[in-house]
Computed example of a mutant assay.
Amino acid sequence: MKIGIEILPNTSSLVKLELEYVLGDNFKIDAFSNDFLFVETGDLTETIVRLFIFSRTVSRVYLVLDVFDLENKDDLYKHALNIDWVSLFSPNLSFAVVPESNTIDRVVIGKLVGQGIVDNFKKNTGTRPKVDLKNPDISILARIQDKTCILGIDITGFDLNDIHDIISRLAILASNWSKEHRFAEVLHSGICESAYELYNFIPLKERIVDTTYVNLNIVDQERVIKLLTKQWQDTIFNVACYDPNPLDIEYKYPITSRDLDALEKDKVDNICSNLVAVTPSKNQQATTIVRLVNLIIKNEDWTTGTIICRTELMNTVPKIRTEKIVDINIRGIPSTILRIGRD
């Protein structure tokens, strides 16, 4: 079986960097679209658990059951009927089909796939699971892109990461980060906490408890428990944050909190700042960009980093080298992740 992951559009290159760190070398990625990737791996259980407890770039995780060329609408029923749903979840659980398509009516997709699932259960067990469109135990993805269809189970059941968590992690990944770098966030928005998790391999174990995955028949519970109780962290890496009000910030982790002016002389290699989160208004952000750059160029050690700013301001960053990595939408604000370096 393949794993499907839902991501922010056009961020696959950054997501791959995180997966290489989180999953190691034993996986292969194929793009289905600009916001959906297939992950093939030799160890399904460990890959799923690692995604749940370590990834900050993925919004949803799916167990991909079938990928096929769609010649006509009846193929939806036929392929759904031929999947061994009984081996995946109990008929005592409710389900709903979540259709995604720009070419076929979503109601039609839901009815055809749903009927295939029901008929499969009736054929093999004599019973049928209940359909619950509002609050299902199991959500079945039926996504059609061009003439290709994916059928799969949403094994998260909720957004694994919100937009803020995803953006914070993408900022780090876009910065040419390395564990050898002395990392700092400038103007606190949460990037430093994400960096601490990444640098120190902090598992977010509690996230797996409420996932749909734990309700599936295929779960190797003993293996999952073993992975959750594993000691992942071995060395503590320091992460710093520079802010004009360092004493007012309550950090989730033991972040080194420093006054903004200390950045001029402290030894820092990698600097990241999310100005859209800190100063969302255009005029205020334009002023902050100039102030931020004037501050960091005084530091003689920094070499790389990222700035997240409004897209309309991306060409106003002075005195340093910038490279657009990706455009993103942050709560309705067209924004850009810029990689920065010394000019």
Results as ranks from 00 to 15, higher is better:
residue 3 I to Q: 01
residue 5 I to Q: 01
residue 6 E to V: 10
residue 10 N to K: 05
residue 14 L to F: 11
residue 14 L to I: 10
residue 14 L to H: 13
residue 15 V to W: 02
residue 18 E to K: 10
residue 19 L to H: 07
residue 22 V to I: 11
residue 29 I to N: 00
residue 29 I to T: 09
residue 30 D to I: 00
residue 31 A to Q: 15
residue 32 F to V: 08
residue 35 D to G: 10
residue 36 F to E: 01
residue 38 F to Q: 12
residue 39 V to S: 04
residue 40 E to D: 13
residue 43 D to F: 10
residue 43 D to Q: 14
residue 46 E to F: 04
residue 53 I to V: 14
residue 54 F to D: 03
residue 54 F to T: 15
residue 63 L to K: 13
residue 64 V to Y: 02
residue 64 V to F: 09
residue 67 V to S: 02
residue 68 F to N: 06
residue 68 F to P: 04
residue 68 F to E: 03
residue 70 L to M: 09
residue 70 L to P: 08
residue 70 L to I: 15
residue 71 E to W: 14
residue 71 E to P: 08
residue 72 N to R: 06
residue 74 D to T: 13
residue 76 L to G: 02
residue 76 L to P: 08
residue 81 L to V: 06
residue 81 L to K: 15
residue 84 D to Y: 11
residue 93 L to Y: 13
residue 94 S to L: 09
residue 94 S to A: 07
residue 96 A to N: 02
residue 97 V to Q: 09
residue 98 V to E: 12
residue 102 N to F: 02
residue 104 I to P: 12
residue 105 D to Q: 15
residue 112 L to C: 11
residue 112 L to P: 01
residue 116 G to N: 07
residue 118 V to P: 00
residue 119 D to P: 09
residue 123 K to I: 10
residue 123 K to W: 11
residue 125 T to I: 12
residue 125 T to E: 15
residue 130 K to V: 12
residue 131 V to C: 06
residue 132 D to F: 09
residue 143 R to Y: 08
residue 144 I to W: 00
residue 145 Q to M: 03
residue 147 K to Y: 00
residue 149 C to K: 07
residue 151 L to R: 02
residue 158 F to A: 10
residue 159 D to C: 07
residue 161 N to W: 11
residue 164 H to S: 15
residue 167 I to H: 04
residue 176 N to R: 06
residue 177 W to V: 12
residue 181 H to D: 15
residue 182 R to K: 14
residue 184 A to Q: 11
residue 184 A to H: 08
residue 186 V to D: 01
residue 186 V to F: 00
residue 191 I to R: 01
residue 197 E to N: 04
residue 198 L to K: 03
residue 202 I to C: 05
residue 203 P to Y: 00
residue 206 E to W: 12
residue 210 D to T: 13
residue 213 Y to C: 06
residue 214 V to Y: 02
residue 214 V to P: 07
residue 224 V to Q: 00
residue 225 I to R: 05
residue 228 L to C: 05
residue 230 K to A: 08
residue 231 Q to V: 14
residue 232 W to P: 04
residue 233 Q to H: 11
residue 236 I to C: 02
residue 237 F to D: 01
residue 239 V to M: 07
residue 240 A to M: 12
residue 241 C to F: 01
residue 243 D to I: 03
residue 246 P to H: 06
residue 247 L to Y: 13
residue 249 I to E: 00
residue 250 E to H: 14
residue 250 E to K: 15
residue 252 K to R: 11
residue 252 K to S: 03
residue 253 Y to M: 10
residue 257 S to Q: 09
residue 257 S to A: 13
residue 259 D to W: 10
residue 260 L to R: 06
residue 262 A to C: 13
residue 262 A to E: 14
residue 263 L to I: 12
residue 265 K to Y: 07
residue 265 K to I: 02
residue 272 C to V: 14
residue 272 C to T: 12
residue 273 S to Y: 04
residue 274 N to R: 14
residue 274 N to L: 01
residue 276 V to Q: 01
residue 276 V to I: 15
residue 282 K to N: 02
residue 283 N to I: 11
residue 283 N to R: 07
residue 287 T to W: 05
residue 291 R to S: 05
residue 297 I to Q: 02
residue 297 I to V: 03
residue 298 K to S: 08
residue 307 I to H: 00
residue 307 I to R: 01
residue 307 I to A: 00
residue 307 I to L: 13
residue 307 I to E: 03
residue 312 E to I: 15
residue 322 T to N: 04
residue 323 E to Q: 12
residue 328 I to D: 05
residue 332 G to F: 06
residue 333 I to F: 10
residue 334 P to V: 04
residue 335 S to D: 09
residue 335 S to I: 06
residue 335 S to Q: 01
residue 338 L to D: 03
residue 339 R to K: 15
